[in-house]
């Protein structure tokens, strides 16, 4: 809760700056962003963690942004890797994580400028296509506490709508981005998903697309606000990212991640 309040304060602080500063935007060229973040997560899936678990996560993100001056659009390339642990403070026989979770997102996108007739506020809209994959598996401690825990995972290719608002306030840039999955196709475990078998042939089944869905049946929302300020010859960033996912096919999954990060842009 304290972390949430702290993050809200950062958010409000950033938003205040947003309306206080004035300066013309310069051409952005090609930018490389590296970001590292940590934060809490709440996660559940119907199959292996039906009552949900809390935990922490850390993420590493690289994003390249390339401005195409003549076509007036930005090309994005993003790779994001998250590691999470899930624990249960109510389990008296262990204080170690019961599950670990890996998440990867990877893909290109395009953004076009929207004309607001405002020199300080720049709005871009576009979309990206991303490969999304996650895998949740029991730890050794989980295997000791839970007799036969089962791993769970899914992967998909998502078409996302993307909106980016960028406000140039002197030497500080405030950037708000919102990404929403519109269409998804991939492998999502079906009700009878049983990842234990005596032959390996079923692994091929996991590679096949078995589900195609659109919003609202598949909800994947990511919101990030970042404040960029110059440090040495680069731009340094503090950002807060919220990721939310909920799908309800034969098995369901729901999670929310808060992630406070620092990064560098050059």
């Amino acid at each position: 809760m304290k972390i949430t309040l702290f993050l809200i304060l950062i958010y409000l602080g950033g938003s205040t700056l947003l309306v206080a500063q004035e300066e013309e935007t310069k051409s952005r060229g090609t930018l490389h962003n590296f970001r590292f973040g940590i934060g809490p997560i709440a996660y559940k899936n119907y199959y292996s963690i039906p009552n949900g678990l809390a935990g922490g996560s850390m993420s590493f993100t690289y994003q390249m942004e390339k401005e195409h001056k003549t076509k007036k659009r930005d090309f994005l390339l993003r790779a994001n890797f998250d590691y999470s642990y899930l624990e249960n403070s109510k389990v008296l026989t262990t204080s170690e994580p019961l599950f670990r979770r890996f998440k990867i997102r990877l893909g290109p996108g395009l953004l076009w400028p929207l004309n607001l007739k405002n020199n300080q506020l720049h709005l871009q809209a576009g979309g990206n296509i991303s490969f999304y994959g996650e895998y949740i598996y029991p730890t050794e401690s989980g295997g000791k506490h839970i007799y036969h825990p089962i791993p769970y995972g899914n992967w998909s290719i998502n078409c996302n709508a993307l909106i980016v608002a960028r406000y140039q306030a002197g030497r500080i840039t405030i950037e708000e981005s919102l990404k929403v999955a519109i269409f998804t196709a991939g492998f999502f475990p079906e009700f009878q998903y049983t990842p234990t078998s005596i032959d390996n042939s079923y692994y091929w089944d996991f590679l096949k697309i078995n589900t195609i869905s659109t919003i609202p049946n598949y909800r994947m929302i990511e919101n990030k606000i970042a404040i960029y300020f110059p440090l040495a010859n680069n731009q340094t960033a503090i950002s807060w990212r919220i990721s939310y996912n909920h799908y309800n096919f034969e098995n369901s999954q729901k999670y929310i991640e808060h992630n406070l990060g620092v990064g560098i842009r050059f």
């Binding site: 292996s48 963690i49 039906p50 009552n51 678990l53 249960n88 403070s89 109510k90 389990v91 008296l92 019961l98 506490h145 839970i146 007799y147 036969h148 825990p149 089962i150 009878q192 049983t194 234990t196």
Partner: peptide, 19 residues
């Protein structure tokens, strides 16, 4: 049959036959 286990609330766990 084969079994799996899941956590119940408050850190309890349940093992049941799933196939």
């Amino acid at each position: 049959g084969s079994v799996m286990s899941v956590l119940l609330p408050a850190g309890w766990s349940l093992t049941f036959t799933q196939s």
